[in-house]
Amino acid sequence: MRSPAAPQNLPIDGFDAARWRALGGMRQEPPWQTLPDHVRRTSAGRPWQGLAVWHQVGPLGDLYVPPHDSHVILLRRGQPTRLLQRHGSQVGQTHLQRGDAVVLPTDTPSFWRSSAARDNIHIDLAPAWLQRAAGCDVALANCFGRSDTALAAFADLLLASLDNGASLSPAFGEHIAMALAIHLVEHYAQPRSAPRAQGSLSMRQMRQVADAVQGSLHERWPVARLAALAGLSPFHFARAFKASFGTTPHAWLQLQRMELAAQLVRGSRMPLEDIARQTGHPSAAHFSHAFRRHWGLAPSAYRRAG
C-alpha cells in the first residue's frame, strides 16, 4: 500500500466557514440521503447490519457533508483526480488514483473539492464492527488517500453483489463487515485502550479449534466463530492463528476440507453431491471447481486415478 497523505495546514480558497459551522447542527443521516442527486446505486434495503455500499457519481463542486454515525471508506472508481479534503480540524490533499482509498472516521464533518467529476464507491461501516473485531474500543485515524488493494477488492465485491442473490443474505453482509473491520483495525485504527498482547495460540486453543472444525467441516466457520472457541477477539485470533498454524484461518479450513474430500472421493463411492455437503460446499459444481483448483484434477478424474 502506498503511504497515506499527511494532514496539512492549507488555505482553502473559497471555503465557506459559515456553511462549515452549520454542519455540526445537522441531523445525522445515511450519506446517500445527504447527497441524493449523487447516488447511482445503493445497498439500501439489503438485510445487512451496520454495513452499506453506494456508488456516487456527481459533477465538480465543493461538498460540505455533515457527520454521521458510520466510518466511511471511499474508493476512487473514475479517472485520477486531485482531491482537497477537510476531515474535522485536519486538511489534506492528494492525487487520488483509481482504486485508492480515503478513510473518514465516524462523527466527523467533511469538506471535499475534486478536480474531476465524482465517481466513487462508498462503504459505510458501523463502529460496533471494529469494537467486535478488536475486542476493545478503537478509533480510526484520518486517511486522505492511499493505495489499498484489499479495500478496493471489498468495494468491487460489494458492488457486484448488488446484481446477484448474495446481497440478499444477512450472513454475506456479516462476513464482509467482519473482514472489513479486521482490515481496518490492522491498518487504520489506534486502540483507545491497550488490548491484551497475543503471540500465538496455546496448545489447548489449537486443539480446541482443530477438533471443533474437523468434526463439523460441513458447517460455516467464520473468523468470529473460530475466535470464540479460543476466547479471543477476531483480530487477535487471526494473528495468533497464523503464528501458530503458519497460514490464515480461511486457508487452513479449506485445506482440511480438501483433505477430507480427497479421502472420500478416492476411498468411497459416495456421490459428489454428498461429498460437497459433507465438506461445506454449497453445490457439486462449486465443490468440483474448488477440488480441481486445489488438487489439479477434477473429482471424477481423481477417483479414476485411484
Rank of each mutant, 00 (worst) to 15 (best):
M1Q: 13
A6I: 06
A6Q: 12
Q8W: 10
Q8R: 10
Q8L: 11
L10D: 03
L10W: 02
G24E: 14
E29I: 09
T34S: 13
R40D: 08
R41M: 12
T42Q: 10
A44M: 12
R46A: 15
Q49A: 13
Q49C: 13
G50V: 03
A52H: 07
G61Q: 09
P66S: 06
S70Y: 15
I73E: 06
R77G: 14
R77E: 14
R77Q: 15
G78A: 05
T81M: 09
S89D: 15
Q90K: 04
T94Q: 09
H95N: 11
R98Q: 13
G99P: 07
L104M: 14
L104D: 05
D107P: 05
F111M: 00
A117M: 04
V138G: 09
A139Y: 00
A139C: 01
A139V: 00
L140G: 00
A141C: 06
C143D: 04
F144R: 00
A150L: 06
L151H: 06
F154M: 02
F154C: 06
D163Y: 08
A166Q: 15
L168V: 15
P170H: 08
P170N: 13
F172N: 09
A177K: 02
A177R: 02
V185P: 10
E186G: 11
R192L: 12
S193A: 13
S193C: 12
Q205T: 03
M206S: 03
Q208L: 15
V209I: 08
D211E: 01
A212Q: 08
L217M: 01
H218P: 03
R225V: 13
H236T: 08
Q254C: 04
R257Y: 00
L260H: 10
L264M: 14
S268V: 02
M270L: 10
E273R: 12
T279P: 01
T279G: 00
A284M: 11
F287H: 07
A290P: 08
H294Y: 11
A298W: 04
G306H: 07
